[in-house]
Design a protein around this nucleic acid. Structure first.
Length: 425
RNA sequence: GGAGGGUUGGCUGAGCGGUCGAAAGCGACGGUCUUGAAAACCGUAGACGGGGCAACCCGUCCGGGGGUUCGAAUCCCUCACCCUCCGCCA
């Protein structure tokens, strides 16, 4: 969420952001929020005066009683005041709850460098790397994988349902090899490896922005928990409510987890093969950074993900997302898309975003020199995350790109130590 | 799943319904001393919100949320979490 102060001081910027992000439903909420907040502030000014008066009189009663004097007259006078305070506090609670709920519906402001656009077609291709493989006889990954028994889509459907493929044999080993390759690389880069919970509570999901709006995208299980749609959620929540030492920033984490998404409403070619699943694996980077350093961190994270794609021998491009395709919580976002020769289309395998202080405000993750024992003002940290990388589409592109005429797959050099062979059979 | 005990400031830990935002110790910060440091001594110190040019003033916060009361860290209800014992379990 944005800080209330931002809405008060820059309501026009917030309104512009809502429109730029094409989230027009948020505009009436902004209006309601601003008026509720104004009402609350004037109420509070009045209420705080009453509270001060009540406190003073109660203190006087206390002092008299301690001296053994009678205070019945004072107590009678304060009763009305106390009742009025109570009414005020009730109204204040209502308004606070309203403001709080509405605040969750206001999207983050796009960074000035983000281009305006109404949808995906206006994303900007920043760079393209590698040579796209093309030609006759290149098969889509589902044909390759099913022919060799690396992936059994039908079995997954039987066990659970559509969108839950089963990896077998060299397919499963490829998953394990990628896991190690990604994590080892990120640890080399200085990230701390995390194995987080795969279920989170509503507070965590709210802090990172999955709730309340995207509730339908998560699987909810018993006891009010949600299956994580990305490890961004548990990992970003690691420092909830803390005041971090600025000298310790940036904090850089990486995590391998399965991710669970309901993906309601998807259809057609999007859901073919590994293109869109309800359960998939992903290695994620999560960074908590100083505000003045967060955009350098965004570039660095994107570069790390890109280098992995280069090492896997995949052709890819980097997109700068336009305002309308960026999503609710992000200030700036890059997508990396790999070329899928078997499908002749681009597939998103990574999304790297800077949320600035949007998540930190709800997380109450702050920093200052010296940390919780430090001096001076606290500031909200900036949070970032990025995939490095999402497995299914990486695997799809990898199988299709490195396929041979005989239906085998040449294993990229960097994965050979992990797989112990140079071909998938 | 059953029974009991807890949750207080960066940490440990006191706290009778009435100057308690909260003792004390540790830690932190500033200073004295020292060539420097340590020790010792003196002092300063919470977070969040509102108001004021400012010194400063006001409000809220003792796990979360409600309640009782003129007044709640202290009493009541409720939820969450932690600990101990029993049961079950990879």
């Amino acid at each position: 969420m944005l800080e209330l102060r931002t809405l008060r001081e820059r309501p026009d910027d917030v309104r512009a952001a809502i429109r730029a992000k094409q989230l027009f439903d948020a505009e009436p909420r902004l209006d309601e929020l601003l008026s509720a907040d104004a009402e609350r502030r004037s109420l509070r000014r009045e209420l705080e005066g009453l509270q001060a008066e009540r406190n003073a009189r109660s203190r006087e009663i206390g002092e008299r009683k301690r001296r053994g004097e009678d205070a019945a007259d004072l107590m009678a006078g304060v009763a009305d005041l106390a009742a009025e305070v109570k009414r005020g506090e009730e109204r204040d609670r209502e308004l606070a709850a309203r403001v709080d709920a509405l605040l969750l519906e206001i999207p983050n402001l796009p960074h000035p460098s983000v281009p305006y656009g109404e949808g995906p077609e206006q994303n900007v291709v920043v760079a393209e790397h590698g040579e796209r493989r093309g030609g006759e006889g290149l098969r889509p990954h589902w044909e390759l994988a099913e022919a060799r028994g690396w992936i059994d889509f039908a079995a997954g459907t039987a066990v659970t349902g559509a969108g839950f493929p089963v990896f077998l044999g060299d397919g499963a080993r490829l998953v394990r090899a990628l896991t190690s390759f990604f994590l080892d690389r990120l640890v080399e880069e200085g990230f701390t490896e995390v194995a987080p919970p795969l279920l989170v509570n509503a507070e965590s999901a709210t802090a990172t922005g999955q709730l309340p709006d995207k509730e339908g995208q998560m699987y909810q299980v018993a006891d009010g928990f949600y299956l994580i749609p990305t490890s961004e959620v548990p990992v970003t929540n690691l420092h909830r409510g803390q005041i971090l030492d600025e000298a310790a920033l940036p904090l850089r984490y990486c995590a391998f987890t399965p991710c669970f998404r309901r993906e309601a409403g998807s259809y057609g070619k999007d859901v073919r093969g590994l293109n869109r699943l309800h359960q998939f694996d992903k290695v994620e980077m999560v960074v908590l950074a100083l505000p003045e350093e967060s955009y350098d961190a965004l570039e660095a994270m994107t570069a790390i993900a890109e280098r992995m794609l280069v090492d896997l021998g995949l052709a890819f491009r980097r997109l700068l997302m336009c305002s309308g395709d960026m999503g609710f919580t992000q200030a700036k976002k890059y997508d990396l898309e790999v070329w899928s020769p078997g499908q002749a289309r681009w597939l998103e395998v990574s999304s790297v975003s800077n949320m600035e202080a949007f998540q930190a405000a709800r997380l109450e993750t702050r920093c200052r020199p010296g940390g919780s024992q430090g001096q001076g003002k606290t500031r909200l940290v900036h949070t970032l995350n990025g995939s490095a990388l999402a497995f299914p589409r990486t695997i799809a592109a990898l199988l299709e790109t490195h396929q041979t005429e005989g239906g085998e797959v040449v294993v990229p050099t960097v994965l050979r130590p992990y797989l112990g062979r140079d071909r998938l059979r």
